[in-house]
Each structure stands twice: as C-alpha cells, then as structure tokens.
C-alpha cells in the first residue's frame, strides 16, 4: 500500500509528509519531521511525554495515527516560546526548578498550557488531576504544581502579556 500524503500544520507552519498507515503522529514528528522535543516514554498513552495539541485539544501523539493529522493544527513543545521570548510556563518552570532530568518537561508544559488556556485560574487539585497523565519520576510534582500555579497567576494579571 502506498504511503499517505499528509498536509498539515505544525506550530503554525505548513508541513507535508508521507507516512505508513500504522505510523503514529509521534513517529512522524520525531522520525520524519525531526521534531524530537516531543518525547517517547511508553507508546501506550500512560506517561504523557508525547503530549501535543491537535486543533487545540491535548492528546498523546502516540495514540494518534500520523495520517489522522491531515488538515489539523498540531501544536508541540517547539511552538511554545515565541522567538526568544519564553512562554510564562517555561519561565516559571526554570524559576521554580520544576524540572530535574527534563525528559517529561516538554509534555508537562504542553499539557499545562492546554490547561491554562481552558482554565486560567485552576485550583491545586485541578492542576494535579489535569496533569495526572504526565508522569514525572524526578520531582514528586511539588515544584511543577507551584510553577503552573504561579504562571497562571502571572498570566491572569497580564504580567506576561504577549
């Protein structure tokens, strides 16, 4: 069977690729588009390291076929910062030391961004449940939660406008 020709958008950029039916979006991002910021931790949807957004919706890119990306708007960790300006979440993760090894960090950030776009003022419990699908083995989550809450606060007050 011939490969599928897929036309899509990644972080606002038009992208075309060829993929087999069985290739996941994660495979395509990492192996074809060389966008290795999205990580593979399990390939079964249990760790969240491969989190991306599809038309604004948070998903595991390992649980979606590449061919399903046709016509969608994909958002990855590589699209979080604009130029040299970090997203407030990225900045807060650095300030709060909310990462240790850093391999879960791209997925956590993509997930946290999706949270704050939907719920700008989440409670600690809401943050914890929203991020329950993003496993982190280094931090015990404490500083991640603090960083997300702090970023939300700043974003609400417009301190990180633009």
């Amino acid at each position: 069977m011939a490969k599928h020709h897929v036309v899509t958008t990644v972080n606002g950029d038009p992208v075309e690729f060829l993929c087999e039916s069985g290739e996941t979006l994660l495979d395509v991002l990492r192996n074809q588009l060389n966008m290795t910021g999205t990580k593979e931790g399990c390939s079964t949807g249990d760790c969240g390291a491969c989190s991306v957004t599809v038309d604004g919706r948070l998903v595991c890119s390992c649980l979606m076929l590449g061919v399903e990306a046709a016509g969608k708007k994909i958002g990855t960790i590589e699209g979080l910062a604009s130029g040299d300006k970090l997203h407030p979440l990225q900045q807060k993760f650095l300030e709060h030391a909310a990462l240790q090894c850093g391999v879960c960090t791209p997925g956590v950030l993509v997930a946290a961004k999706a949270l704050l776009e939907k719920h700008p003022d989440p409670t600690e419990t809401e943050v914890r449940y929203w991020l329950a699908g993003n496993l982190c083995r280094c931090t015990g989550y404490d500083k991640i939660i603090r960083a997300v809450m702090d970023a939300a606060k700043d974003m609400r007050s417009g301190r990180h406008a633009g």
Binding site: G45, G48, V54, V59, C60, L63, Y129, G133, N134
Partner: peptide
C-alpha cells in the same frame, strides 16, 4: 485515562 486520553 488521562486528560490526553480524554481528548481522543
């Protein structure tokens, strides 16, 4: 599943 799984 997770929030991510909920998206699908």
């Amino acid at each position: 599943g997770s929030t991510q799984v909920q998206g699908r």
